[in-house]
Design a protein around this nucleic acid. Structure first.
Length: 202
DNA sequence: AGCACGATTAACT
DNA sequence: GTTAATCGTGCTC
């Protein structure tokens, strides 16, 4: 039986305020398709990066070859390499010409757990996908996915409805790793997390 | 052309 | 708590 919940979220979901999209992505299901294999997880942590004025956003440098994707239509993957070895997955938000993106920081594995276990071998389960570089390793997300349209049902990467998250188990705080970023951007509470222990207990 | 550094992670002491 | 790994990007010369 075909389920509407399997449909990727439409571009209109992402073409809204970046901070709102970051919050609403909690509980959604991130799906990576690789041939006949599928790996997925529930999004449990995100961060918003919005506009050229946000000195933590790569867009602070304006439109460059790297940031160009964030100036285009919403619902595309912005994937970039950091520290020469970790790929980080973002989803482009806002409208054409208004740059912004949501960093996916952590997921809870749902499907393809054996594949994830292989790729994250040697690590305890709780450390499989609890960081942006780790989840990219688990889902085989690399630079070739930069620019991918994540609204396509046949795509290599997309997001569907997942679980409803009760507001009481959502936590917020400053974004991670911005020690050298000036205020007020360093302290903006644009990080959103699901308290997963409470989620499982619910 | 050269350089400093980063939205991180894992392995150290 | 501390630190190495490793390279694309944006800025300076």
């Amino acid at each position: 039986m075909f389920s509407l919940k399997m449909e990727p979220l439409p571009e209109s979901f992402y073409a809204r305020d970046t901070v709102l999209v970051a919050r609403e992505l909690l509980g959604k299901k991130l799906v990576r398709r690789e041939g006949k294999n599928g790996v997925s997880g529930l999004i449990i942590e995100t961060e918003a990066y919005r506009g050229e004025e946000d000195l933590a956003c790569h867009c602070r440098a304006g439109k460059t070859p790297r940031t160009e994707i964030m100036y285009g239509p919403a619902g595309r993957a912005y994937v970039y390499l950091i520290y020469g070895m970790y790929w980080l997955l973002n989803i482009v938000t806002e409208g054409d010409g208004s740059p912004g993106a949501v960093l996916i920081r952590a997921i809870e594995p749902l499907e393809g757990v054996e594949i994830i276990a292989d790729r994250r071998g040697g690590q305890p389960r709780r450390n499989w996908t609890n960081g942006p570089g780790k989840l990219s390793r688990a889902l085989n997300i690399q630079g070739d996915l930069n620019g991918t349209n994540i609204c396509s049902p046949k795509g290599l990467l997309y997001i569907t409805e997942g679980e409803h998250i009760h507001p009481e188990i959502i936590e917020t705080g400053p974004r991670v790793g911005l020690e050298s970023v000036p205020e007020p951007w360093r302290s903006k509470a644009w990080r959103f997390m699901v308290n997963y222990e409470k989620l499982k207990g619910a």
